[in-house]
Each structure stands twice: as C-alpha cells, then as structure tokens.
Amino acid sequence: MRMKAPRFALALLGAVVTSSAWADDVQVAVAANFTAPIQAIAKEFEKDTGHRLVTAFGATGQFYAQIKNGAPFEVFLAADDTTPAKLEAEGDTVKGSRFTYAIGTLALWSAKDGYVDAEGNVLKQNQFQHLAIANPKAAPYGLAATQVLQKLNLTEATRAKLVEGQNITQAYQFVATGNAELGFVALSQIYQEGKITRGSAWVVPAALHEPIRQDAVILAKGKDNPAAQALVDYLKGPKAAAVIAAYGYSR
C-alpha cells in the first residue's frame, strides 16, 4: 500500500518550486564608481525579489566595447548618459528602458587627513608630485577631472604629474596606496551617510565640469529576462534611492 505524502509537505514543495521558478540571475555591467552602492542594493534586491545580480565592474567605455563584441550583459549601469544612448541608437537595448539612475559627484581626495582643504586650494598650489585620474577616454569621471583642470587653467601645469588609471577604481587605489598624494575620485568611493570616511577631500563644484548623469538601460540580451526588468524597477524605487543618496549621489 503506497502512503500519501502529508498535505503540508506537498504545499511546502510547491512553494519551493514556485519560488525557484520565479527567481533568475541577471548579468549586470556596472560603472566602477557605483561598486559600493550596487553591492548594498543587490542584497536588498535579492531579499525582496529572489532574483540575483551577477555583476562586473569597470570603465564605461570598456563595457561599451565588450557589449558590442557580444558580452553576455543584460543590464548596463553606465557612468554617463551618452554611452547608453549610443547603444540605444544602435539597436542594442530594449527600447524605452533607459533612464537616469544617479547623478555623480566628483571629489579631489587624499588618503592623508588634512592634506586637501575644503576649497581645493591644494590643487592650485601645485606642490604635489602625482595626481591620479581615471582614463578620460573610457571613464566619465576621468573626463570630468580633465574639465576641472581646464576650467582652473591647470591643464599644462599638471600634465606631467598625472597618473592615469584604467577606471575610477584604479585611480582611487593609486591614492589609497600612497602612489599619488591626491586624485580625482567619485565621491561615492569615499563618502557614506553624510561624511567622508577616510582622509581629506574637496567636493568639486558641479559648475566646473559637465553633469555626470549616469544612465541605466536593459540590453538586448536581457529582453526576455524578468530579473532585468525587476532590477530596473527596483533602481527607481525608494529603497534603492535611499542607498544612492547615502553614497553622495543625487537623482
């Protein structure tokens, strides 16, 4: 005689199957400046939706090349608005999915306490040996840094002192390790809950460079993945907004 499984066991099995059926992974290319915020958002996103982020971090320009060469990314969180718009114009995105998820802030930073003054005069005094920036051709924060130097008439004076990282994370590492006395980084790398977390910094006035509007978009490969749309929706919601603000971004 075959025994029947208890009803509660069958119900539990059904719940597990249903949960796994709705849970998907989503491959996300994330601009390096947004590393810490997306890691914080990912934990809540997985908890709230069951979906899981599989993230890669790097320079926006490098991601563009990888996407064009067939990389498996399904969502792109760029450090600018022009690269996602270009991908959209070229037919590599889901139409209508592009939006601005954050507006970035540039900071001049030193790992040394008191080295950078609140007005950024240390930059104008030009007594340092090395100034780190991200590659301006691939990283929007690097481009913004060159615009600041140009506005302050410091392009030629600092040219021989520039130490260029492939992306904003590498620029940050140059300063953090002492290989450069100071550098231009994303405020999000050194700021949390209303304060600078290490060293000293000058928050660069937005008027000194073009706005760093950071757009997200669902890529063509994510068209049929519900987790891709769920992530975009989540980034527009209040929980993600709170995390984004905590790292010094506006919207």
Rank of each mutant, 00 (worst) to 15 (best):
R2G: 03
R2S: 08
M3P: 06
K4Y: 08
K4M: 09
R7L: 10
A15G: 14
S19N: 04
W22D: 00
A23V: 04
D24S: 15
D25R: 05
V26R: 12
V28C: 01
A29S: 07
A31Q: 02
T35G: 00
Q39I: 00
E44V: 03
H51R: 04
L53H: 05
V54Q: 15
T55I: 09
T55H: 01
A56C: 03
G58P: 05
T60R: 10
G61T: 04
Y64N: 11
A65S: 10
N69V: 00
N69P: 03
P72Q: 07
P72D: 15
F73Y: 15
F73L: 07
F73G: 08
E74P: 10
V75D: 14
A78K: 01
A79I: 00
A85R: 14
L87Y: 11
G91F: 01
D92Y: 13
D92T: 04
D92G: 08
D92P: 00
Y101N: 04
A102N: 02
I103L: 12
L108P: 11
L108D: 08
W109D: 09
A111F: 01
A111K: 14
K112S: 14
D113G: 03
E119F: 05
E119Q: 15
N121R: 14
L123G: 07
N126R: 07
N126H: 05
N126T: 01
Q129S: 15
Q129H: 14
H130R: 12
P136S: 14
Y141I: 11
G142L: 07
L143C: 03
A144V: 04
A144I: 05
T146D: 06
K151Q: 14
L152K: 11
T155V: 07
E156P: 00
A157L: 08
A157I: 01
R159D: 13
L162M: 10
V163I: 10
G165I: 00
Q166S: 12
I168E: 13
T169S: 15
A171R: 02
Y172S: 07
V175P: 11
A180H: 11
A180G: 06
E181H: 10
V185R: 10
V185A: 07
A186K: 00
L187T: 06
Q189Y: 05
Y191G: 02
Y191Q: 04
Q192A: 08
Q192C: 00
I196K: 09
R198Y: 09
G199T: 13
S200W: 01
V203K: 08
P205Q: 12
L208H: 05
H209V: 06
E210V: 00
P211E: 12
P211V: 10
I212T: 03
L219P: 06
L219V: 13
K221L: 15
G222N: 12
D224W: 06
P226Y: 01
P226A: 15
Q229V: 09
Q229T: 08
L231Y: 02
V232I: 11
K236M: 03
G237S: 14
K239H: 12
K239L: 09
A240I: 00
A242E: 12
A245G: 02
A246H: 05
Y247G: 03
